[in-house]
Amino acid sequence: MAIKKKHTVGIFSRDGQDNFTWLIKLLRDKFQKEVQNVHPVYISNDYRTFDNALSQCTFAILYHTKKRGRLNVTDVTDSLYDKDLKDLSNYLDSKNVVVLLDDLEDSSDDNKRRILLEQHTIGTCARTLILISETEKESSNLDGSDPKMSQSPTSPQLQDDYNSICGKIHDLMGVMSESLKRNPDARDYDETPSVSSYGTPTRDAQHYDETSTVSAHGIQPRDQESMRSSSVYNSEQHRLIQPSNPDTAIDMKTSDKRQKESKREPTNEGRTGNIFNLSNKALLWSLGGIICILLIILIIVLCLTV
Rank of each mutant, 00 (worst) to 15 (best):
Asp110Phe: 09
Arg228Pro: 01
Glu269Phe: 02
Asp256Lys: 15
Asp146Tyr: 12
Cys303His: 10
Thr21His: 09
Asp82Thr: 04
Tyr91Asp: 01
Met252Gly: 04
Lys66Phe: 13
Phe12Leu: 08
Arg48Tyr: 08
Ala282Asp: 05
Val9Tyr: 05
Asp256Arg: 15
Val97Asn: 02
His64Glu: 06
Leu71Phe: 00
Thr192Met: 11
Gln17Lys: 09
Thr272Gly: 10
Gly289Cys: 11
His238Cys: 03
Leu142Glu: 09
Ile293Ser: 13
Pro147Asn: 06
Leu294Phe: 11
Asn37Lys: 12
Lys253Asp: 12
Gly10Glu: 01
Lys137Leu: 14
Gln36Cys: 05
Arg70Phe: 10
Val35Glu: 03
Ile115Lys: 06
Leu278Tyr: 03
Arg14Glu: 08
Ser145Gln: 13
Ser212Asp: 06
Leu104Glu: 04
Ile3Asn: 08
Val98Leu: 09
Lys112Thr: 08
Gln32Tyr: 04
Met173Val: 00
Lys168Ala: 06
Asp82Ile: 03
Gly289Tyr: 08
Asn234Ala: 12
Gln259Trp: 04
Ser79Gln: 07
Ser286Met: 14
Pro40Thr: 04
Met227Thr: 02
Leu100Asn: 03
Gly270His: 06
Met252Lys: 08
Lys66Ile: 00
Ser286Gly: 13
His64Trp: 04
Ile241Gly: 06
Ala205Asp: 12
Gln159Leu: 13
Glu191Pro: 02
Tyr198Pro: 09
Gln157Leu: 11
Lys257Met: 15
Asn90Phe: 01
Leu88Tyr: 00
Ile275Leu: 14
Lys83Val: 10
Ala2Asn: 11
Cys57Phe: 02
Asp209Thr: 08
Asp18Leu: 05
Ile115Ser: 01
Trp22Asp: 02
Asp247Val: 11
Ser140Phe: 12
Ile290Pro: 00
Thr77Phe: 14
Tyr233Glu: 13
Thr21Tyr: 07
Lys253Arg: 15
Leu80Asp: 03
Leu298Ala: 15
Pro246Ile: 11
Arg228Glu: 11
Phe276Pro: 00
Ser194Pro: 00
Gln36Tyr: 11
Leu131Glu: 06
Lys6Gly: 01
Ser194Leu: 06
Leu129Trp: 09
Phe50Trp: 10
Glu191Lys: 13
Gly10Ser: 13
Leu101Phe: 08
Leu129Tyr: 07
Ile291Gly: 07
Ala205Tyr: 10
Ile132Tyr: 02
Gln32Asp: 01
Leu158Lys: 09
Glu191Gly: 05
Asn183Arg: 06
Thr65Lys: 10
Lys253Cys: 07
His39Asp: 10
Asn280Gly: 03
Pro266Val: 01
Ala126Thr: 05
Pro193Glu: 05
Ser155Pro: 02
Phe31Cys: 08
